[in-house]
Every structure is written in C-alpha cells, then in structure tokens.
Nucleic acid binder design. Structure first.
Length: 440
RNA sequence: GACCCCUUCGUCUAGCGGUUAGGACACAUCCCUUUCACGGAUGCGACACGAGUUCAAUUCUCGUAGGGGUCGCCA
C-alpha cells in the first residue's frame, strides 16, 4: 500500500448493531490494524427519524464489546469530522456545486439528479476481481431530495473522498451499485478508492440475515452470555479463512494473519451451534479474576453475591469446562454461595431410592468429622475408610455426597467441591441430607 | 424482468490439473469416568448437472440449473 490505509465502517443508526454489519466492521478493523492504518467510524444518519441517541449507542456499545476500537469518529474526534452525516451538509453542497459546474446534474421535480456517463464501467474488486458493467440504461440517479437532503450514494462517496478513504470493504450487496459510485468519483474529478466486496451473512435457511433471525443483533450475544472474543473469532471465520493452525485464535492472531485475498467469494450461513462451541473454547482460557469479571453480572442477577473474588474464581473454575455460555454459571455454582440451595427432584429421588443412604451418610458424617487433614488425600482416605467399613465401593458414596452437597445430579468433581466448601459446610450438608431422609 | 455475485460432506471450509478429496461443528459408537463435561478413538458424510480443453479435471472455458443480491426522492 503506497498511501497510508484509511478504512471506515459507516452504519446507519437503526436501533441495533446487525451481526452482518459487525462483521463488515470487523474486517475493516482487521485490515486497518494489519496494515497499520486508520479505522474510521462514520454514522450515516441522514434519516432524521431514526437518528436517536439509543440507536447510536447500540452501535458504539456493540463495537466496543467486540473490541473494535476506532481511530477517528464519534467520541474520538479526528481531522475529518464531524463524523455524523447529519452534520456535514455543507460538504455535500460544495460537491454538488462541482457537479453542477461540470454539467452533470439537473433538476427534476425539485429533486437533483446525477447524469450517468452511460459508458461501460469496470469495478476492480479486491475480492471478486474485475467486475464489468455494461453502459447503463437505468434512469439517472437522484442525489438530492426536494427538501434539500441528500441520498446515500452521493453522501457516501463525498464523505469517502473528504475522509480520504483508501479502501472500501463492504457487503456484496453493494457491488451492483458500485459502478454508480465510480461514475460519481470521476465526475467529481477524484480517484476512486479500492473496493472489496465481502460475501453476505445468511441465516440458517439461506437468505440474508434479517432483524428477526436468531443472532442478528450483537446485543443478543451480550444478553445470552457470549464472550466477545468467541463471537469475534466465529465472525472472522464467516467469510475468511486465515492462514493459521486451527480455527480458534485471538484478535492479535487475526490481525497478524489478515489478508484480503483470503476472503471468500461465496456467502456463508450463520450457525449458532458452532458459535456456541467457540464460546466454550474461549471460556476454557479464562482463569481467576478474569473469569469472575465475566461471570459476576450473571451471578448477581441470580442473587449470588460475589464478596470474595478468589473464592468465586475457584467455584467458577470447577465448572468452567462444563458450561458453554457465561449465563449458565449460576445454575452450576449457586450452592457454593448459599446454604438454602434447593435439592433437585432427580437428586432427591436417587437419594430416596438408595435404602442404604441414611446409614452411609451418617457414616460419612462421622468419618469426615474425624478427618484431620482436609486435603484431597485426607478426604480420599476418609471416604475410602467408610467404603471399607460399610462394604461398598467408594464410587457408590460419591453420588450421595454430590446430591447432599449441591442438591444436583451434575456438577464439579466431588472432591474439588468438598475442598471449596470446606469441612464445616460439608459435614453440615451431609447431616442435613441425612435428616431429610430419615424424616420422610 | 434486467444486471451482478456465488456453487466441495447437513453447516463452515481446505484444495489453486494427477490427493485413498483434508479439517472443524453437528451426529453415531466406543474408551476414560462417582455425575456432567472435557479429552481420546472410530464411524457417517461432499466435488450441482452437461459439454468442451487436456494424457489427466473438484481444479481451466462455456452452457444449464440452483442459491443469493441489486435495480428508491431507504441506508
């Protein structure tokens, strides 16, 4: 690249950040970061009705969540501002004057139309190669409404010129209109940027992802308990295969590997199951305070107070390989945070079905009370001792302990669970389970 | 309707003239195991079709079909 790379993401504030838009932003961001260029955010809010603060927030929040930081744009400033099209009217007027001077526009019922040059135009595309369009027979394009407001194609081109955009990476749905943009650049006496049209994101049934499809809004991933690094990872792969080992990688890896020539030509369907698998994979990398940080909102929402971060971290680490989404944590660790945990029906049934359970639990209670060394070794010895005395396999005692300690049929490793709960609470819970059984 | 893009397992893909067509997700079976997972092993499963070009086509060309997209005083 001879001149410094300047790319942009130019969403219109519709009230949410679409996953397809996010991926377009992601590719632009990767391209900029890979080439050491600038990534610019420009809000195309020429439609006043949709131009609300909440709609803008959805875009900013979604991008920040994914880690797509912009170098110029709202909240950041920059030499080419303002970065809201609603505030750039004078730029458009200036460029319209140029077209007028060149005799390329005319009025039609109060609107201004751009006179197409009507010659064959080739779009040199970084992804698709040269795409040729025959001289058009379409009617000339309206670029300004009778009320003085401008149309997308015009403002988009003018802003890209003014912001010195070098590469336009956008969805393939724009490809059929790109000749119009090139025509406009030429009429304005400007060299067009390089274009790269990336394939579209399709829903599982094969049509363009729309607002109603599962996973269409970035906010929905935040709400469902996805990790941003997992969504980032999966989105990278929907339209691009990096030259990396394996499909799981970090943002840094992606930046290093990004190459526009590796971007696919065909559309890809979104698969929530695989996206969830990526989340599971990235979840496993989280430890200690980072794990607590991600899980905290979910724990608190479930009424579980996190006062002791190292303790919370231990509980989360004990189950992190068993969950896919961060939102699942409370259901797996709640009994670590409260004494009044419920005993699931299935656990209770299994407990009651075992005629020996009361005797075994009371033996366990005694042996564990006598356990002086509350370590994995000491606990194991105590349990094995009970097994020998009661003439059962140690394995038969484990489910009983699990049910008593957690009220659940699934959960962390029993000994790990015992280590985290501590001797006192373990004995207390074993006794409680025993008394529930003898009462009923 | 016109124009544009696309076409390898169910899904995401590797492949860039000669491969037993590879991997990932999902699914199935088995192993590991106190539960649930993780992990390991195995299996299932694809070059849309038809012509060319070539000694040889998944790979190159053309056509057909299918899918997607665009043709606004929306962005």
């Amino acid at each position: 690249m001879s001149s410094p790379v300047r790319v942009r993401f130019a969403p219109s504030p519709t009230g949410y950040l679409h996953v397809g838009g996010a991926r377009t932003a992601l590719y632009n961001w990767l391209f900029a970061r890979h080439h050491g260029g600038k990534f610019i955010l420009r809000i195309e809010d020429t439609d006043e009705a949709r131009n609300t603060d909440a709609a803008r927030r959805a875009i900013f929040d979604g991008m920040k969540w994914l880690g797509l930081d912009w170098d110029e744009g709202p909240e950041m400033g920059g030499d080419c501002g303002p970065y809201f099209q609603s505030q750039r009217q004078s730029n458009y007027d200036t460029h319209l004057a140029k077209l007028e001077a060149a005799g390329r526009v005319y009025e039609d019922n109060g609107a201004i139309r751009f006179k197409f040059s009507r010659v064959p135009i080739t779009v040199p595309d970084l992804v698709c190669g040269d795409v040729q369009f025959a001289a058009t027979e379409e009617p000339d394009m309206t670029i300004r409404r009778p009320d003085g407001s401008y149309i997308f194609h015009f403002v988009n081109v003018v802003d890209d010129i003014e912001m010195r955009i070098t590469h336009v990476l956008r969805g393939e749905d724009h490809l059929p209109n790109t000749w119009k943009h090139i025509d406009l650049y030429r009429a304005l006496g400007c060299e067009p940027p390089l274009f790269g049209h990336i394939p579209l994101l399709l829903n599982p049934s094969g049509s363009k992802m729309s607002k109603r499809d599962e996973g269409a809004s970035i906010a929905s991933y935040i709400e469902a308990g996805f990790l941003p690094q997992a969504v980032f990872n999966y989105l990278c792969l929907l339209g691009w295969t990096p030259k990396l080992d394996g499909e799981k990688f970090s943002a840094e890896d992606a930046v290093r590997a990004f190459d526009i020539s590796d971007v696919h030509h065909s559309n890809a369907r979104f698969d929530m199951v695989k996206c969830t698998w990526f989340n599971q994979q990235h979840l496993r990398d989280l430890t200690g305070a980072a794990l607590v940080e991600h899980a905290r909102p979910w724990l608190e929402k479930a009424g579980l107070r996190v006062d002791d971060v190292p303790y919370a971290a231990r509980t989360l680490e004990s189950v992190k390989e068993k969950v896919s989404l961060v939102s699942e944590f409370p259901g797996w660790v709640h009994f670590f945070f409260r004494e009044d945990f419920p005993i699931e029906d299935e656990a209770m049934m299994k407990l009651k079905a075992n005629a020996q359970a009361p005797a075994l639990l009371s033996a366990l209670s005694e042996a564990l009370s006598a356990c002086a060394d509350w370590s994995d070794v000491g606990i194991t010895e105590a349990i094995n001792g009970v097994a020998v005395a009661q003439k059962v396999k140690p394995g038969a005692l484990m489910p009983l302990l699990r049910f008593s300690l957690s009220g659940q049929t699934r959960g962390p490793d029993v000994k790990v669970m015992m280590g985290i709960l501590g001797k006192e609470r373990v004995i207390d819970r074993v006794n409680r389970a025993g008394s529930i059984l003898t009462q009923s």
